[in-house]
Simulated scan of single mutants.
Amino acid sequence: MKIIQVIDQLNVGGGEKVFVDMCNILNKNNIEVSAMFLLEAGVLRTQLDSNIPYFEVKRIKKWSLKKIQYCSLILNKFDIIHCHFRHVYRYISLVNLLFPIKGKIIFHDHYGLIEKDTKVPFLFSTLFKPNYYIGVSKTLTYWAEKKLKVHKDRIFKLENIIIKTETIELSDKKFDFILVSNIKPIKNNIFAVKLAKKLNKSLLLVGQNQNDNYFNELSNLANESNVVVETNITNAQIILQTAHFGLHTSLSETGPLVLIEYIAHKLPFLAFETGEVSITLKKYFPDFFINSFEIDEWEERISLIQSKQYQDDLFDKVFEMEFGEKKYFSDLIEIYLCVNKKN
């Protein structure tokens, strides 16, 4: 079974990290996997195992027939075409329409705004309706069944995981708080800055600027506070040990992947409750989740969490049980085998 993972570009983001980890896990387990980038590989390409083949389409014009045909020629060498993100799946569906692809096309949906935006993208319920759908949360798989009308036995849930980066425990931590999240309004990063300012705490913000106006507003607030903004870090795990406590303030998520990173590195945190990872982790760490954006309530909850002692082995146990590589690989291969045997 030959598999190709398809994405536009490996910029810094949760879905992109999932792509990298998925490729590496398959490769580690001797599954023949390749990668295709519709644009160029991007900054996270260096995190792919060096022996994974990859193709750069370097598409400039979306409707270039030459590039569409080129994609088809590559994809027809594979049994499973695993497409990440809605815009990528839409393009591959166009390729398949114009130059039919022999392999099975899977749409892997990472859409983070699903709790606020449930509309069906253009042509997704008709011409580009997916035959096989992977959602990273129950919310997404329910949406695929009810809105897209994908048959239930062709819908799969595959929760996100991370591959843990080994780091050195630091006794001298530079920051009180850390927030790892790309910078744009839906991520609500400014709330974290206001929180740190109100509590007179230091904060490290790690993420790429994805909205200039919002980033400028955040930067102005940060300059007035004890806040450092880092936009060029491609692996946040290596700096988690520089902080005492994690934050996550996003309004809507399918993950969020960073909470798994916090758990992997035994970092207590407080997060707004959204996404599949939150549902999973709340069973073990109920205090770590909150359903408001009242600063006084966040202050009170942070104090409560910091007053408790959380055993390192609990973090380790939860990480391995819920987000371990072995379970993820088993679940992914089961999906591929199921898809491969269907007509």
Score class of each variant (00 low, 15 high):
Gln69Trp: 14
Leu240Met: 10
Asp172Tyr: 15
Ser202Pro: 10
Ser330Pro: 07
Tyr111Met: 05
Gln306Ile: 12
Pro130Glu: 01
Asn343Val: 15
Lys146Val: 03
Asp79Lys: 00
Ile190Pro: 05
Pro256Lys: 02
Trp143Gln: 02
Tyr262Val: 06
Tyr111Lys: 04
Lys174Trp: 13
Ile155Glu: 01
Ser64Phe: 07
Gln5Phe: 11
Ile134Arg: 11
Pro286His: 01
Lys342Gln: 15
Leu73Trp: 14
Phe175Tyr: 09
Glu294Gln: 15
Leu251Gln: 04
His82Cys: 09
Val6Asn: 08
Asp331Arg: 00
Pro286Cys: 00
Glu115His: 12
Phe177Gly: 07
Ile25Pro: 04
Phe245Asn: 00
Gly112Thr: 08
Asn200Gln: 12
Ile162Asp: 00
Lys58Ile: 07
Leu270Ile: 07
Glu276Tyr: 03
Glu322Ile: 06
Glu166Phe: 08
Glu217Phe: 12
Asn76Phe: 04
Val193Ser: 10
Phe285Val: 05
Ile333Leu: 11
Ile3Glu: 07
Tyr133Gln: 03
Gly207Lys: 06
Tyr133Pro: 05
Leu240Gln: 11
Leu259Tyr: 03
Ala192Thr: 04
Tyr91Thr: 01
Lys342Tyr: 15
Val95Lys: 00
Lys119Pro: 12
Glu297Met: 11
Gly135Ile: 06
Ser292Val: 11
Phe269Ala: 07
Gly15Ile: 05
Pro130Leu: 09
Ser292Arg: 06
Lys77Leu: 05
Lys17Asn: 12
